[in-house]
Amino acid sequence: MRVSGRRLMRIAALAVLALVAVSVGAAVLYRFLPVPVTPFMLVRAVGGSGIDKDWVPLTEISPQLVRAVIASEDAKFCDHLGFDWAAIEGAFAAIEDGGRLRGGSTISQQTAKNVFLWQDRTWIRKGAEAYFTLLIETLWSKRRIMEVYLNVIEWDDGVYGAEAAARHHFGKSAATLSRREAALLAVVLPSPRNWSAGKPGPYVSRRAGVIERRMGVVESDRLDDCAG
C-alpha cells in the first residue's frame, strides 16, 4: 500500500511528539522519585556486570563528595545552565586539531547521559544529550541534579552511586566519607573500571591531592552552595 508524503510527515510528527511526551514525563517523575535503573546499567548487566546500587538522598552523602566532584568535574556547576561553553569550545578546538570528540561535559550533561541515554560519542547521542540536559535543567533543581548524579554514576565495574561506591571501596557509608576518600572517588570517575579509589596507584594518589586542594577553593568560594 502506497503511503502519501503528507501521511508520512504526520506519522513522523506524531512519533516526535510521543518521544517528547515520554521524555518529559520521565524527567518529571525523576524529579521526585529515585531512578531505579538506567539504560547503561542494563547494557552493562547484559554484558556480564552486576548492578550494585543503593539509592540514598543527598542528605546521606558527605558534603565532601559534592565538593570533590565539583572540583574535579564541573567547577561552574552552580552557575551554568547545563553547558560550560568554554569547555565545549576547547573540545571543538581539539577536533579541529585532529583529535576526537571528547570533553566539555558538565555534571548536568553527565547526569542526562547516564539517566536517559546510551554510551557512545556519536553526534546523534550528543544531540540527545543536549536535549535531556536542557530538560533536567528546566525541570530539576541543581540540588536534584547533583543527587541523581551521585546515585547513578559508575564507580567500579557494576558499582553505581555514592553509597555502593563508599561501601565497595572503603567499607563505610557515603555519609561518612572523608575529604581524602571523596577526592579519590572523584579522581576515578573518568575511568572507574581501570582506576581504583580503594587501592589507588601513583597517578590516582597524586591527582587526589590536587582535587583536595581544589575542594578547599570550592568550599571557601561557596561553589557548592546550590547543592547544599
Score class of each variant (00 low, 15 high):
H169V: 15
V66P: 06
M9A: 15
I124C: 00
G48D: 02
T38K: 07
V56A: 03
G161Y: 05
F77C: 01
P190C: 12
E89R: 13
V46A: 15
R67V: 01
L17N: 06
E96R: 12
I61C: 08
A68L: 04
T106M: 12
R207E: 09
S205G: 13
L8W: 15
R7G: 06
E73Q: 12
G158V: 01
V115M: 02
A183P: 11
L117W: 08
L65E: 02
V3F: 14
D74G: 09
I124A: 05
R125S: 05
I153Y: 09
A197I: 14
I153E: 05
Y203G: 12
P36I: 04
V152E: 13
N151Q: 07
K199P: 02
T38G: 01
E163S: 02
I145W: 01
R31I: 00
V56K: 10
F40T: 08
R6V: 15
L19F: 10
G228A: 13
A130S: 06
G161S: 03
V148A: 04
R167I: 05
V159E: 00
R180H: 12
V66T: 13
G198F: 11
F77G: 05
I107R: 04
I70E: 10
A166M: 12
G50L: 00
A45W: 07
R222V: 04
A162K: 11
R44P: 06
R10W: 05
P190T: 10
C226D: 10
R102T: 15
A15Q: 04
K142P: 00
Q110N: 07
R193H: 13
C78M: 06
I51K: 00
R125V: 02
N114Q: 14
I153N: 09
L134P: 00
L184Y: 11
F40R: 05
V218C: 13
A164F: 14
V20Y: 08
G103A: 04
G99S: 11
S191A: 15
P39K: 03
M146G: 09
A12L: 15
G161M: 03
E147W: 12
A94S: 08
V16R: 07
Y30L: 11
V37Y: 03
I51Y: 07
A21C: 12
R222Y: 04
R222E: 14
T38Y: 09
A45V: 01
D54E: 08
G216P: 05
A182N: 12
N194V: 03
V115G: 05
I124P: 00
R102N: 10
V66L: 06
Q109T: 07
H80C: 02
G25L: 11
D74Q: 03
P57M: 12
L42G: 05
S49T: 00
T59H: 01
W195C: 11
F170P: 09
G209R: 15
K142G: 07
E89P: 06
S220E: 13
M146L: 12
A197T: 13
T138G: 02
D225C: 03
D84W: 01
Y203L: 14
H169G: 09
F116S: 08
M215E: 11
R67I: 04
R144I: 13
D221F: 10
